[in-house]
Computed example of a mutant assay.
Amino acid sequence: MNTTELVWFKSSYSGTGGDNCVEVAVRPETVLVRDSKDVRRQPLSVSPAAWADFLGHTAR
């Protein structure tokens, strides 16, 4: 998977320091999550339904 062609979004909960960020890229079939400090590592891949469930639990 070529993750350099994806559009990554920084988490709104990440600090302003720029070095402790969670980034997310959304594709129709999967949601990718990575640590901005280690972009060479394979990102976590979850289904859109699992990502929606996760967001639903964090918003409470």
Rank of each mutant, 00 (worst) to 15 (best):
D53S: 15
E23C: 06
P43I: 00
L44P: 01
D38F: 04
S47H: 02
H57D: 09
L32Q: 07
K37W: 03
H57A: 14
D19V: 15
W8V: 01
W8F: 04
L6H: 05
E23V: 02
V24T: 15
A52I: 01
L32F: 15
T58H: 11
S11T: 02
P28Y: 10
L44N: 01
S14M: 04
D53K: 11
V31P: 08
H57I: 00
T4K: 13
G56R: 02
K37Q: 14
V26E: 13
V7A: 14
A25S: 14
H57F: 09
D19I: 13
A49Y: 05
D19R: 12
D19F: 12
W8D: 05
E29W: 03
E29C: 04
R41E: 09
E29K: 06
F9Y: 07
P48R: 02
G18I: 06
C21S: 08
V31K: 03
T4R: 12
R27K: 14
V31M: 08
D35L: 07
T58N: 08
L6R: 06
K10D: 10
P48A: 09
E5Q: 13
L55N: 05
G15R: 02
V39W: 01
S47E: 02
D38E: 09
R60L: 08
A59Q: 10
K10W: 08
